[in-house]
């Protein structure tokens, strides 16, 4: 898988989702997976150079060079460890702290109050949106928590502590009836919804070290998801989430999933590393 990942690197140094031009998201996951692997130093250096060149003036990163807007992928860049010549996480920090889901901002809460009705969620806890100006959702919130926790471990910052605490509450407020997480709408118009494997794994990973009332149920749900999972990427997130809470990942009973893309391959490698005690999202 390592050699397949190296072979998928574009000439400009980045990675595409499944071939094609370079995008920030698959580039970061490929770099995380290849970093410190023998024979990968050149590929990593070229990848980092691509990312360095993609930083925007506002301090964030766009998902693709054709997109003139910094988005949630900035959190992914902040997951990379600082290099001797480039401290990507520190550069991403201020942009990340400026972002919040529109529903928890004052204007969003006022809008909700004016529209009346009973909101499906507690709106006080701020998470992160996929795209500025939209609401908070599970995946960007979970990934930003992981990025900020890495920064917090390097140097304590009260602002980070407050945002991470609020974001964890956001995750806990969006647990589905079955104990896991979906994209972030555990209720819609008062109707309960069910969880997805991939977001359940991500949320559990971001809640590493947090004991909350629904944890046992969430872990049990993640285990059941994994047994029946038909996606390599989703299985990897579930393994990473379960391992973060010290739970061995059960063997899938279903057909499993094929690695069809850069993301699938990189996340499989990252889950394997976590299985060997090196969870790069937490270290």
């Amino acid at each position: 898988m390592l050699s397949a990942l190296r072979a998928a690197q574009n000439r400009d140094g980045g990675w595409g989702y499944a071939g094609g031009s370079s995008w920030t998201e698959p580039t970061v996951y490929a770099l995380l997976a290849l970093r410190a692997e023998p024979g990968s130093s050149q590929a990593v250096e070229r990848g980092l150079a691509w990312l360095r060149g993609a930083r925007r003036q506002d301090g964030g990163w766009a998902p693709h060079p054709a997109v003139d807007q910094s988005t949630w992928v900035t959190a992914l860049v902040a997951l990379l460890p600082p290099e001797s010549t480039w401290d990507a996480p520190a550069q991403a920090l201020e942009w990340l702290l400026r972002q919040t889901g529109s529903e928890s901002a004052v204007a969003g809460r006022l809008r909700s109050w004016l529209l009346g009705g009973r909101p499906d969620y507690e709106r006080r806890h701020a998470g992160w949106p996929w795209f500025p100006g939209a609401a908070s959702w599970i995946a960007p919130t979970a990934l930003t928590i992981l990025a900020l926790q890495k920064l917090q471990r390097r140097s304590a910052d009260r602002r980070i502590e407050e945002r991470v605490e609020a974001a964890r509450k956001f995750l806990m407020s969006r647990v589905c009836r079955d104990g896991g997480w979906n994209h972030g709408a555990s209720r819609a118009l008062g109707y309960e919804t069910d969880s997805y494997p991939e977001t359940t794994g991500m949320a559990l990973l971001a809640l590493d070290g947090v004991a909350f009332p629904g944890l046992s149920k969430a872990l049990a749900r993640a285990g059941r998801h994994l047994e029946q999972c038909r996606s390599a990427q989703a299985s990897s997130w579930l393994e990473l989430g379960l391992l973060a809470h010290g739970k061995p990942a059960p063997q899938p009973k279903g057909p499993g999933g094929l690695c069809r893309s850069t993301m699938d391959t990189a996340l499989c490698l990252l889950a394997e590393k976590a299985l060997r005690g090196n969870n790069l999202f937490l270290g």
């Binding site: 988005t71 949106p129 996929w130 795209f131 609401a135 959702w137």
Partner: peptide, 13 residues
């Protein structure tokens, strides 16, 4: 989705 996310919530707003 790679630009706007999953869900494409900017369309709702």
């Amino acid at each position: 989705g790679a630009v706007y996310g999953w869900p494409k919530n900017i369309l709702h707003w």
